[in-house]
């Protein structure tokens, strides 16, 4: 099956290759194969596939990755605006669909 990709050129993912130590952790945790390792450095190769989950940035020990992470969920964003909080999905309450 063709892999789904959302919107082009919106993702906030950034990688500072100079800081990267080539540990490969970001590659292990990314669910969308966004990174590749070559020449002892990680590279972003499929940026538009990134869903801004934040796993890579959180697991990069040298903080080479930044991403404005959060749930890509319209209901969560609406809820966030209404309650004046960060977008969150209503996973924990009984009615909610899950993000």
């Amino acid at each position: 099956m063709k892999e789904l990709v959302y919107l082009p050129d919106v993702v906030t993912l950034n990688l500072c290759e100079a800081t990267c130590n080539g540990c490969g952790m970001c590659i292990k945790v990314c669910p969308h194969e966004v990174f590749e390792l070559s020449g002892k450095k990680a590279h972003i190769v499929r940026k538009d596939f990134c869903m801004e989950c934040g796993a890579c940035a959180l697991n990069c020990q040298v903080k080479a990755i930044t991403v404005n992470s959060g749930v890509g969920c319209a209901a969560g964003i609406i809820g966030g605006i209404l309650n004046n909080t960060e977008p969150t999905c209503g996973c924990s309450d009984s009615k909610a669909a899950c993000c």
Binding site: L4, V10, F49, E52, N68, G72, C98, C99
Partner: peptide, 20 residues
Amino acid sequence: AMNFTGSSTYTSLSGVKKEM
């Protein structure tokens, strides 16, 4: 359908904001 972005596994926060 827009709310289904929350259930999907490939939508990003920045993308959904733009869409909305």
